[in-house]
Every structure is written in C-alpha cells, then in structure tokens.
C-alpha cells in the first residue's frame, strides 16, 4: 500500500495536468474534461478555505484553554467570529446588518492600517540620513522625492511638468524593467516546475 498510493497519486496528477494543458491547445476535444477538472479543483479550494477557518478557531480555542500566555486576543477573535457568523447567518451575506458590521469594523480597520503606514513611511524617510549616508541611500531618497513631486499637483504650486515627465520615466522604465525581469524569472520557474510535475519527477503531493 505504501508503494501503490504514491504511484496512484502520481498517475492522477500527471493525467489531470495533461488534460488541463491539452485543453488549452485543443479546447474542442479536451475542453469538457478541462472544465470538469477545474470545477473539482475549485470545490477542493473552497473546502480548504473552510478548513482554514475551522483550524483557526480550534487553535485559538486551545490557546484559551492553556494558562500560559495571555489569551485576550484569542477571546476577542473567537467572540468576533461567533458574532459575525450569527449576524451573517441571520441577515444574509449582503443584508443590512452584515454590511453594517463590514463598513463599521473591517473597512475602518484596514484603512487605518494604511494611514499609519503612510505616517511611518514619512517618518522613516526623514530619518533615512540619520546614519552615515551611502550613495544608494541618497539615490533612493532622491527617487522617492521625485516620484512624489511628479505624481500630483503640489499644494499652492500646481503641477510641475518636468517632474511629471521624470516620474513617468522612472515608473515605466527602471521600475517596470525590474518588475518584468522578476516576472520572466517567475514564469520560467513556473514552466520548469509544471513540466517536472507533468512528467512525475517532482511530486509535491507526496510520494
């Protein structure tokens, strides 16, 4: 059984991957099988999400049972989860009570985090030269200032066109060049990993 199960997993993975790949090349022949397999995978992903929520609740429930650390955060999480489930279960996912909980708690919390991030970034930029300045430190600081000045019209000054042009160049040439390089590397790695899984050399599912 210990030998049969890994081989079975490998066969299932290779056949499924091959049908999905062939569905791109021959959608008329393998399109139906591809759609069916994708539907199964989506169901598994949804079930994994439910498992993740259940596991989160179990972990914090055990944390409350343990007397070692302070468990106030776990109590808050489980209480919030229970109340939200009850409200959404009664009002529905798009009911007025559900939207009130969403707009009154989740949206302000996430927006506040980003606002604090903005203040912290400005403070870090101001203290960037506190230590001995290096050339790349100064380059980073100058780039930040140019992008900020070229993004929007300044208060009481208006738009500075040369700075906007510089900002566009910085965003579209150096920044995109680095990002595209990363994406190409990721794409090549994805192709190699996909081929290894398709031929059964790499078995992330075990075996």
């Amino acid at each position: 059984m210990k030998k049969i199960l890994p081989i079975t997993n490998a066969i299932i993975a290779v056949i499924s991957g091959s049908f999905i790949l062939l569905g791109y090349f021959f959608p008329g022949v393998f399109g139906g099988i591809q759609s069916t397999l994708i539907g199964w995978a989506i169901i598994l992903a949804a079930f994994a999400l439910l498992l993740g929520i259940f596991n989160l609740a179990i972990v914090h429930w055990k944390k409350i049972g343990s007397e070692k650390s302070s468990n106030i955060n776990s109590i808050v999480l489980l209480t919030s989860m229970f109340i939200t489930i009850v409200i959404v279960g009664i009002s529905g996912p798009t009911g007025s009570w559900s939207l009130w909980v969403f707009n009154s708690f989740q949206v302000p919390v996430e927006v506040s985090l980003l606002a604090v991030l903005a203040v912290v970034l400005v403070y870090a930029g101001a203290r960037l030269l506190t230590r001995r300045p290096k050339w790349y430190t100064i380059l980073f600081l100058v780039t930040v200032l140019l992008v900020l000045l070229g993004s929007v019209p300044l208060f009481l000054i208006g738009e500075i066109t040369p700075l906007s042009i510089v900002r566009d160049w910085l965003a579209q040439v150096p920044a995109i060049a680095g990002a595209r390089g990363l994406l190409l590397g990721v794409a090549l790695g994805t192709v190699a990993t996909g081929l290894r899984i398709l031929i059964g050399v790499d078995r992330p599912y075990g075996g």
Partner: peptide
C-alpha cells in the same frame, strides 16, 4: 498630504546631515 510629506522628508534629511 503629498506636499507636506515631501517637506518633512527634505527637512528631516537636511537636519540629519
């Protein structure tokens, strides 16, 4: 906000130097 941020970064950097 953008203008003040630029000013804070500039003033802080010059002061540190």
């Amino acid at each position: 906000g953008i203008t003040v941020s630029v000013l804070i970064i500039l003033i802080g950097s010059i002061a540190n130097v």
